[in-house]
Amino acid sequence: MMIASTARLVVRDWTESPDDLAVVYDIYSREEVMRWLGGGRGLLTDPGQAVERVRSWRERNAPYDGRWGLWAIEPRAAGGAAGSVLLKPLPGRDGVTPTDDLEVGWHLHPDAQGHGYATEAARAVLAREFAAGTARVHAVVMAGNEPSVAVARRLGMTHVGVRTDWYGGAELETFVLNRPV
């Protein structure tokens, strides 16, 4: 299902197609990607784990009926996914229980970085969410992840310091964006 689109991108559900599963494995098996996503927990080590990952995303986000989730970013010119964009409730201090705070995030294949895909996809899902009435969305970034800090700033997000409210109390650089007036 398509979630959003721009002139260059389609934001859509990840599928269990061989092409999507290969991209999921290629992204989430890379230490240079996973080190920014909880210190490498969840690193895929076998291509067969990609289908489990896609199914877990689908199951975790099913209650949100497409409003929130983790989706593929597909550049129209490439004909395949380049990464993920997410919009979902931040998990609390226990790392599991959803809070009332929403998070926007992005995970790109290293070859797809630097083309503006994360910013463009995030803008599209943020516009959709703000149109639905949400007042504020957060982005959380591990210290040292300067490319993600740059995306948050390009989105117009304001840095509000380090917070430990989410993801099991991890220290995260926190950015916020309020719905445009």
Rank of each mutant, 00 (worst) to 15 (best):
A112F: 04
N145F: 08
E120D: 04
R67F: 05
R58V: 04
V125C: 02
R93F: 02
G133K: 01
G95Q: 11
E129W: 11
D111M: 00
S56T: 08
S148F: 06
D101F: 04
P75N: 03
L44I: 00
L108C: 15
A124H: 08
P89V: 05
E103P: 07
Y117P: 02
V96H: 14
R60N: 09
V141I: 09
H109L: 00
W68L: 15
H159G: 07
H115T: 07
T158N: 11
G39A: 11
E171I: 12
A152G: 06
G80I: 10
R67M: 14
P147N: 12
G133Y: 12
T158F: 03
V104Y: 07
S56V: 10
A152S: 05
A121Q: 11
P75I: 06
Q113V: 13
E173H: 05
G48T: 01
V176W: 07
Q49N: 03
K88S: 14
E120W: 09
R123A: 11
R35K: 13
R53K: 11
N145T: 05
M157Y: 10
W71L: 10
S56C: 08
R55H: 07
A82Y: 02
L90K: 09
A121I: 10
R67L: 15
D46F: 02
V54L: 01
A112C: 12
A72V: 01
Y117H: 12
V140G: 06
T97K: 05
R76T: 07
G116F: 14
T45M: 04
M157G: 06
A150I: 03
V51Q: 06
S56N: 13
A127T: 09
G66A: 01
A152Y: 07
V162S: 06
G156E: 06
V137E: 09
L43N: 06
E173I: 02
P110F: 14
W36V: 00
A170D: 15
A112W: 14
Q113C: 15
K88P: 14
G169N: 00
G40Q: 05
R41A: 10
A170L: 14
D165H: 10
P63F: 03
R67C: 11
R55D: 12
G83W: 04
H138Y: 15
A139S: 12
E103S: 03
E171F: 07
F130Y: 08
G79W: 06
P110Q: 09
A50V: 02
